[in-house]
């Protein structure tokens, strides 16, 4: 399958890339890892007139710690996230999620920034970024700005990014001691989109109560969903089986999955409930380790 003709640009700086985006507007698409965009172009579901390849811009690919925050460059490959010792140290959830994203070859190309900027509720990073309370950095003609993850996803394939913005970095606050995180998605086969996926990060206080919790859901809602009511029922409370069961029930009620080849609406809701329980238990285990 061959994409429709387009003009290819490969800027060497962010400023140059933004100028091209200003010049071409809606007719341009940014090419990052290309593992969502190029398949869509081959199927002619997307036919941009201009492709702005950001792969040759230095400084967009990094994972480092800075003043209580872990910074992940927008162009950082999934395979780099998968094998990062820094992320393993603070966020075991990234080891869980990257192993379940597509396959090794795709992870060698696909980027974390692209996974978010694509705005697809079936992608895995949106739920994870909600659980860890990330901030997205967008760079546009007026410079850099912060977008909290809860203000990033708008609608079907729609994000807070403007046509002239480039997602340059993701910033994640390093959680206090006593924090654990976990992600799992139910999938039919390796590399499939989730039937349902759940991301959890929680912090235990000295008494073993849950002092903070983030829960994100994958592919069970038109836009990536934070399970706010589930978080509320656990925040500041002891993690009793009763409370956890209530959080699971709320998440399965508050999502809005659609029936497809992966399962019925009822099945997906049920799996959300099962996974919320399992991921809370796993995160608690890790928080105590």
């Amino acid at each position: 399958m061959i994409a429709q003709s387009f003009q290819y640009e490969s800027p060497g700086t962010i400023q140059e890339a933004i100028s091209l985006l200003q010049k071409y507007g809606d007719d341009a698409k940014i090419l990052s890892g290309g593992h969502s965009l190029l398949p869509m172009m081959k199927l002619r579901l997307a036919s941009p007139e201009y492709l702005i390849d950001i792969n040759n811009i230095p400084g967009l690919s990094h994972i480092n710690e800075d003043n209580g925050v872990v910074k992940i460059g927008g162009l950082t490959r999934e395979s780099e996230v998968e094998h990062s010792d820094l992320l393993k140290k603070y966020f075991p959830i990234f080891g869980d999620v990257t192993k379940l994203i597509a396959d090794p070859q795709v992870r060698n190309r696909g980027t974390v920034g692209g996974n978010l900027a694509h705005g697809d509720a079936a992608n895995d990073h949106p739920a994870v970024m909600m659980a860890v309370n990330a901030t997205v950095m967008a760079t546009g003609p007026d410079g850099e700005r912060e977008i909290p993850i809860d203000e990033f996803f708008f609608g079907f394939y729609q994000t807070a990014l403007q046509p002239t913005d480039i997602l340059t970095e993701i910033r994640i606050p390093i959680p206090p001691k006593g924090t654990g995180s976990a992600y799992h998605k139910l999938e039919r086969k390796v590399g499939d989109y989730a039937t349902a996926g759940v991301a959890v990060q929680l912090t235990l206080d000295a008494n073993g109560n849950c002092s903070n919790i983030g829960i994100g859901l994958t592919n069970v809602n038109p836009i990536p969903l934070r399970a706010a009511r589930s978080e509320e029922v656990l925040k500041g409370k002891p993690l009793t089986e009763e409370n956890i069961a209530l959080a699971a029930q709320y998440a399965s009620e508050d999502c809005s999955p659609s029936a497809d080849l992966r399962g019925s609406v009822e099945y997906k809701r049920a799996m959300v409930g099962v996974l919320v329980k399992r991921m809370i238990h796993k995160a608690v285990e890790r928080a105590k380790a």
Partner: peptide, 29 residues
């Protein structure tokens, strides 16, 4: 498959295995 699934087109680019049906030739510059 021509859809990034089967891996028959796997090659190495700068030592990294990639599916060459989902990379543009210009990106190999």
């Amino acid at each position: 498959c021509d859809t990034t699934s089967c891996g028959a087109c796997t090659i190495l680019m700068d030592g990294k295995s990639i599916k060459s049906c989902t990379v543009l030739a210009v990106q190999a510059n």
